[in-house]
Amino acid sequence: MSIQRRDFLKAALGGSLAAAASARPGLAASQGRDLPPEALGILYDSNLCIGCQACMTACKQANDMPVEFSGQQTTWDNPLDLSAKTLNIIKMYDGGDTPAFVKRQCLHCLEPGCVSACPVSALEKDPKTGIVTYDKKACIGCRYCQVACPYNVPKFEWDNPFPQIRKCELCNHLLAEERYAACCEACPTGASLFGPVKELRQEAERRLNMEPGQYHEFPVNHISTGKTQTHKAEAYVPKIYGADELGGTQVMLLSGVDFNKLGLPEVRDKSYVSDLEGLSSKLYSYMLLPAAVFGGLLYVAKRHGDHE
């Protein structure tokens, strides 16, 4: 498909553009739901989360983010939602017998709407780790990524005259230091577990098959370190959020409470990215249609052109 689209731009912009563009890896339509070879992600387990918000503190430190005040107080960091100052937040659902927590952050979709949307490739999905990264040097601040994200993750610095988009990049910058996502490093219970997506999916399946009330070993921090803790298994909603959602995500969630009660939208399996790119690949297939139209238009405009 990328070839077809490349041809479209060749006609629109000339060959030089296409030469550069062809170096970019294809997106959804070419990759489908295949995981990137070394896909990294997080498994968040609401049943294990104690709402301590250590992940939020660690995230702010690791990403050098400012504190955010809400309401009247200006003493401590208490964001109420993801924002340009908060890339990761623990939210509380208070409607059940006991409160339940949910961690909101970028889910690092397999077919990310934001990456497909971005006109200047400021948002890109790493071909190896699948991490969706942001480059402020490319960004023009059009905020189409915000429109295109089904989970409302990318945030914009509204109060800054020289703003940028902020979103979780899975602590991409720590990977080089042999570290990983700060939220998972800090999580005391293993509710946020870092690791290769394949292993995390197996772990999630294992948890769904646990008998509630029994004690089980749960990996902590990073699935590959072998460090575990014993917890009593709670009943799960039999679903991994992020396994199929809009083509799947690399950050997945487990919960004992319905996911839509936790503010996670109920979405279909087929991504909107595949809708859009499927459509444009038909319309602009080898640029045949627009070229033919243009040819026809040239002919009629020349022939009917003397109406002045």
Partner: peptide, 9 residues
């Protein structure tokens, strides 16, 4: 939980 929890909505 925190005195000022972030509600879902």
């Amino acid at each position: 939980p925190s005195a000022t929890p972030a509600d879902i909505r």
